[in-house]
Design a protein around this nucleic acid. Structure first.
Lengths: 160, 160
DNA sequence: TGAATCTGGTTTTAAAATGCAACCCTATTC
DNA sequence: GAATAGGGTTGCATTTTAAAACCAGATTCA
């Protein structure tokens, strides 16, 4: 019996992971954010098996993270473009990259230096903040009682 | 041939996903953030198979996301606690949760209401910001040329 | 003392997922 | 009209996964 599904889980993290929580999906989204749009380009950049790439692209399209656009270039060609939902994964991808850079730095690679297109200045680390922008750690927060009941996940029983 | 590994990938997102990018690992981390520490508690809360839980806990300990602590309670009991590296996944987990709440809301569940322990006020959505705290989308940023060469991933060849 | 129980695992078995290579079809270029 | 590129699909061997059974040390219960 293979992978469990979490489509109907009451935990939104589980539901999110259901859509982008496997090895390749988030890397596809990452590359899409950097401008990749074509099947062959994803395939070559990621070194992913073609059938797996097909499956992931189709699933991301199903989940409306990507949209498949026919481009009239010459002949029948397609592009996979991020939707707003897909672009909304930006903080997650960047946070993951920063975490990777911080805790598993590649010896021969300086960390990502992403900059504001307007000002040219480096972005800051992605963090959880209170309403005023004060950074918060996991120890600084709590879940109010009404919510606490089914928190954090509630995925008690098998969902597949 | 099963899953490819990215341990030595030059892409820090790939390396991050190598450690916490599978179905269960991040859910384990999530529950750890909410206070779960014991094997049986993880098992019951997540509904995960015990062998998979063993494997994930061991891998997370190997990767120093969790540490296994012997607690002298009575007999040989263990607790799995987040390390600083593990707690540093907080923004990622929260961003994922917010994304799930926003784009795949559960009909019967209001979104996570996480609050600052001090002020009692709700946290804001996790976002990418410039140095001043101005929110940035994927379209607002660029990678300077020196970095751009091997960006975004560079994981061209098979790594496993 | 000894049976039941709790905790934290390991083993076994079957169904899926993955990776690779080979094949297919359309359209295009030489 | 042969070779090539884009975008897939199919088959097969290898891994992972899920579920449940089994195991072993320590503890409580009777």
């Amino acid at each position: 019996m293979a992978r469990k599904r979490f489509d109907d889980s009451s935990c939104s993290v589980a539901r999110a992971l259901n859509e982008v929580g496997d090895w390749w999906s988030l890397l596809v989204v990452l590359h899409a954010m950097y401008g990749t749009r074509r099947f062959v380009d994803f395939q070559q950049e990621l070194g992913i098996a073609r059938n797996i790439l097909c499956d992931r692209l189709a699933r991301l399209v199903d989940n409306e993270v990507l949209k498949k656009v026919e481009v009239g270039e010459h002949g029948s060609r397609f592009e996979y473009r991020l939707t707003e939902k897909g672009r909304d994964l930006f903080p997650i991808v960047i946070a993951l990259r920063q975490w990777g850079d911080k805790w598993n730095p590649a010896p021969d690679q300086e960390p990502l230096d992403l900059r504001d297109r307007e000002t040219g200045r480096t972005i800051r680390p992605v963090e959880v903040q209170d309403a005023d922008g004060k950074p918060l750690t996991v120890r600084d927060v709590f879940v109010p009682e009404e919510n606490n009941a089914r928190s954090p996940s509630g995925s008690k029983k098998k969902a597949g």
